[in-house]
Design a protein around this nucleic acid. Structure first.
Lengths: 335, 335
DNA sequence: TTGAAAGCGCTAACAA
DNA sequence: TTGTTAGCGCTTTCAA
């Protein structure tokens, strides 16, 4: 497992090792034929440049960290795919870190990454408190937050316009004839969810509807959690015609509970989600939802971060994308 | 973004920098109070060890590469989650590489990783030809293959017993009364699929059934592809009572096509999958399937790799896990 | 056009 | 117990 170094090549070529370095880096100050000869030799000897040795001197690892809560979550894994793609096309690789939704672990990972000398980090925060928790470290590493709207915080982020998305959702349901729309998933501790909630409320105001909630506060975004809460919900009388779920995963849980309770979607009850995760487009699921444009979010996050890195960190950018409604089959027009 | 180094701390503490190094590494050859003092100083000055500088001298980056075809695929992302978890618990981080199902890109990524001096790589091959394509590089980097059975190849791998799984599937269907079972997804260019196919055939033999295929060769494992093929299939008369799909994603496509064709599952037709991806457990989907134990596969791959690394590469291991049947609602007992 | 040498931040062998 | 020094593999001045 001993590797060929620049010195080995130099020796074989009978030149100094700085010459080899020049040949490799495509420097102009070297004669065409020595370059050729050296390059050929490198091939023959299976030389691969040691990226970390280079990193030490050029002060750049061409490595980005992606810190997210859980790569097995379909929303995250899609983001990750696009981020990797975009990063690679710009010559970077990604170190993947799962924070498992713990701010502490998140912080720990972040510190580790600064030790690893990654060039920057993209962070999908585990909670709204992430920003505060990470604040002391932010000055030490170019960072862009992804997926969470940090409002006026002086840090770069790219997210979707959650307020607008929720507003659009209500608008859509209203146009379909719904007047009694239950919002499912009001959640503390997440700006994203606060904004969605506000969007819901504002839309209700705008259309003269009364906001309705299920009387529970949320902690989780999982399918299982949505299922459990929906189960309680369906044990009570249903005095609404549509449910607007704060996330698709919640909606999936609702779907299951509805099935078990014999409530037909969309026949008896309309259901609208938010995020447009892969699962939502699956046959038999066909969830109508507000989409977060994952590919765009991803590439903007990468671009934004690389800008920051390459232009030596002047200021920050907030980019907020408008979501779109994806119409499938979980909402129906009512009389 | 200038970082505090060991020298800065040494200067501040009025000691030589090797003393600081010793304090940091918890070496016994240092007095308790100088250690304390230095450690405190490190905290105060926000010192973080430069991992790459250390890596240069200790010849270990504590970095593993995970090369897979596509992290957005739910099967892969689950694997990735568990791999990251296990790796982290052993003090390693993961570099994520998507090969996008191209052997060429796969190879390229592999080379890149050897340049990055990762300590090892876990590779979920994009095709059966991956092994051959990577062979010349394998000697230069500890590698374990994951998910694909490389048969007698002298390289470490961990995979599921695909032959056995397929056999079990037929057995299950047989016990339910099915005698005409169509195998959907016979696929060239993948050992995994060859083994599943063989398992199917052998089970048919064992139970006196006639193997049935759809007369198409497969290239893809996606939902869409399964859907398109199933569509053609359902245009012809149905002379079987169950479909055994080679992958859950294929099964999902079949589900959709069936829905559109007005074929009820499981009432009219039973459907059995393979893999047990997350989606399969979703409400309304409820696919009965053969499970690949992802968590176990992941941790075994990591352990196997770390063994290899720590014990300086003596030989290889083949680990083949037995899959289990997950009974849900897509198969029914027939008379 | 090429070579010599310094240095990136760290560990480890050797001295003191 | 502590300091000095070499060196990991590379890039990059500065000389030649």
């Amino acid at each position: 497992m001993k590797n060929v170094t620049i010195k080995d090549v130099a020796r074989a070529a009978g030149v100094s090792y700085s010459t080899v370095s020049r040949a490799l880096s495509g420097s102009p100050e070297i004669s065409a034929d020595t370059r050729e000869r050296i390059l050929r030799l490198c091939k023959e000897m299976n030389y691969t440049t040691n990226t970390i040795a280079r990193a030490m001197v050029v002060h750049s690892t061409k490595l980005l960290a992606l810190i997210l809560t859980d790569i097995s979550n379909p929303f995250m894994s899609e983001l990750a795919y696009y981020i990797d793609q975009q990063a690679r096309s710009r010559g970077y690789n990604i170190i993947l870190c799962n924070s498992s939704r713990s701010t502490e672990l998140e912080r720990e990972q972040f510190e580790l990454m600064i030790g690893r000398k990654v060039d920057g980090v993209i962070l999908v925060p585990s909670e709204s408190s992430s920003y505060e928790s990470l604040k002391p470290l932010l000055g030490r590493m170019p960072t862009v937050f992804l997926g969470e709207n940090l409002r006026e915080a002086p840090e770069s982020y790219v997210s979707v316009d959650n307020h607008r998305g929720a507003f659009m959702g209500v608008e859509y349901l209203y146009a379909l004839g719904h007047r009694k729309i239950l919002y499912f998933g009001k959640r503390r501790g997440s700006i994203t969810h606060q904004l969605r909630d506000e969007g819901y409320i504002d839309a209700c105001k705008a259309y003269g509807l009364t906001p309705r909630y299920l009387n529970n506060s949320f902690t989780s975004t999982s399918i299982k959690y949505g299922y459990q809460l929906a189960k309680q919900l369906f044990a009570q009388p249903i005095d609404y015609t549509a449910i607007f779920a704060a996330t698709d995963t919640n909606a999936l849980g609702i779907l299951q509970a509805a099935e078990e309770a014999g409530i037909r979607i969309p026949e008896t009850l309309s259901l609208l989600g938010f995020d447009n995760i892969r699962d939502s487009g699956l046959p038999r699921i066909n969830l109508t939802t507000i989409e977060q444009p994952k590919k765009l979010l991803a590439s903007m996050a990468v671009d934004s971060l690389l800008d920051k890195i390459q232009n030596e960190m002047t200021g920050y950018t907030h980019r907020v994308l408008t979501p779109a409604l994806i119409e499938r089959k979980s909402c129906r027009r009512i009389v």
